[in-house]
Structures are given as structure tokens and as C-alpha cells.
């Protein structure tokens, strides 16, 4: 009895019972447990406090704890559900659930909107889109003239900003993303279907079948 759970008693802050998370996300209990193995690996990689700090997230994503990236920052902020500067296990599982292949497209579309609404104004604005385009060009070490960047932004707004008010609202985004599913390819992680094989959990969970 006691021997199995002795290692389990020390749960990090933000730990939530896998049964509860499985009920409220697309993951099964086994998958949540496998995610816990991955979570532990990341959250103990530098600070060893069982929470994922920005540097640990960057290390897992880029193999470099100092690599700055606008989109990685945005993802980190959205995964930080409690808004306290770290990702806890609950935020990790609930947010990754959006990326599960079986999660409804509407949830992915809504998440992508929040991701691209850089300043949280409720709209994707022209300036925000330009900032993101410049960030990706910088990341790819591509040089484009300001005119070319403006053209890309203009063209995209022509397609997405249906009422032509200079900003993309959630409804316009929904219509635009539904028409262009390729835009949402990065909102699905096929890995999440194989997570139990990639990170097998050997913890005996006596409550799993209750």
C-alpha cells in the first residue's frame, strides 16, 4: 500500500487529479498520466520546482533556454492559466488539449484567435499582424522590403476583414479560418495521439477505475 504511493505524495503546485482533467479535456486518464511524465521532465529541467518557467519552456522548445521568440511567448502566456508567470500541470494539460487531433475545430479556431490577438483587445489588428509577420521573417532570416510586408498584410486583411473596419473580429476569424484550414495546421499535434507510448506512466493509479 504505502510503498506504491510514497513517491506520489509530493505533487507540484497546480497538480490536478488526472481523472478530473480527463473528464474536462480531450485526453484519457492514461494520456494525462503520460503528460505528467513529460511535464515532470520539462518542469525539473532547470529550476526543479515542478513548475514550468519560461526558460524551461524555451529549452524544451528550442534546446536553448535563452532563445526569445514572439510566438513561443504567446503560447507560454496562454498556457499560464493562472497568470502567475509559470505553467502548472493543470494549465499544461488543459492547454495542450486544444492541440489534440480529436478536439473540435471551433476550440482550435478560438485559441488561435487569442494567440494572434497580441494585445488582448478582442481583435486581430493590422499592427499586430504586421508585428507577427516581421517576427516570422526575422526568425527565418528572410529579408523583405517594408512594401512587400505591407502587401502581405494588406492582402490578408482583404481576405479576412470582411466588414473592412481595419481589424479582424472573432467572427471574421472563424469564417476565414474555416475557409482556410491550412492556417490551423499548427493547432493540431499528432504526437498527442501517441503520448502514452512516448511517455509511459508506470505509476499505479488505484483511483483510475473508481
Amino acid at each position: 500500500m504505502g510503498c506504491v504511493s510514497s513517491k506520489e505524495s509530493k505533487r507540484p503546485p497546480g497538480y490536478v487529479d488526472p481523472n478530473i482533467l480527463a473528464k474536462e479535456t480531450t485526453f484519457s486518464v492514461n494520456e494525462v498520466e503520460a503528460l505528467y511524465e513529460l511535464y515532470k521532465k520539462i518542469s525539473y529541467s532547470i529550476f526543479k520546482d515542478g513548475l514550468i518557467h519560461k526558460e524551461e519552456f524555451q529549452l524544451a522548445l528550442f534546446r536553448n533556454s535563452n532563445k526569445k521568440n514572439l510566438f513561443a511567448d504567446r503560447i507560454f502566456d496562454l498556457f499560464d492559466l493562472k497568470r502567475n508567470g509559470v505553467i502548472d500541470f493543470e494549465g499544461f494539460v488543459r492547454s495542450l488539449s486544444i492541440f489534440h487531433p480529436d478536439t473540435p475545430m471551433a476550440e482550435k479556431i478560438a485559441f488561435a484567435f487569442r494567440l494572434y490577438d497580441l494585445r488582448g483587445t478582442g481583435f486581430i489588428e493590422r499592427e499586430e499582424l504586421k508585428e507577427m509577420v516581421l517576427a516570422i521573417l526575422n526568425e527565418s532570416e528572410l529579408l523583405l522590403s517594408d512594401d512587400a510586408v505591407e502587401q502581405i498584410v494588406d492582402q490578408t486583411f482583404k481576405q479576412a476583414d470582411m466588414n473592412d473596419d481595419g481589424k479582424i473580429d472573432p467572427n471574421e476569424w472563424k469564417v476565414f479560418a474555416s475557409k482556410n484550414p491550412a492556417l490551423l495546421k499548427n493547432m493540431t499535434l499528432p504526437y498527442l495521439k501517441d503520448i502514452t507510448m512516448a511517455f509511459p506512466s508506470f505509476v499505479l493509479n488505484s483511483g483510475a477505475s473508481d
Binding site: F71, I152, Q155
Partner: peptide
């Protein structure tokens, strides 16, 4: 006229959005 790439399509290729790397050992 050559078609201009959609900005969101370009953005979706960002390394920072490729969470698959989290799962690589």
C-alpha cells in the same frame, strides 16, 4: 499576378508554434 502568401499561413510555420518539439526526447 503572383499571389501573395497569406500572412497567417506564414505565421503558422513559426518554430515557436511548433509544439511537437516538446515531445522529442
Amino acid at each position: 499576378r503572383p499571389s501573395v502568401m497569406n500572412a497567417f499561413e506564414l505565421i503558422s510555420t513559426s518554430q515557436g508554434l511548433n509544439l511537437g518539439t516538446l515531445f522529442e526526447k
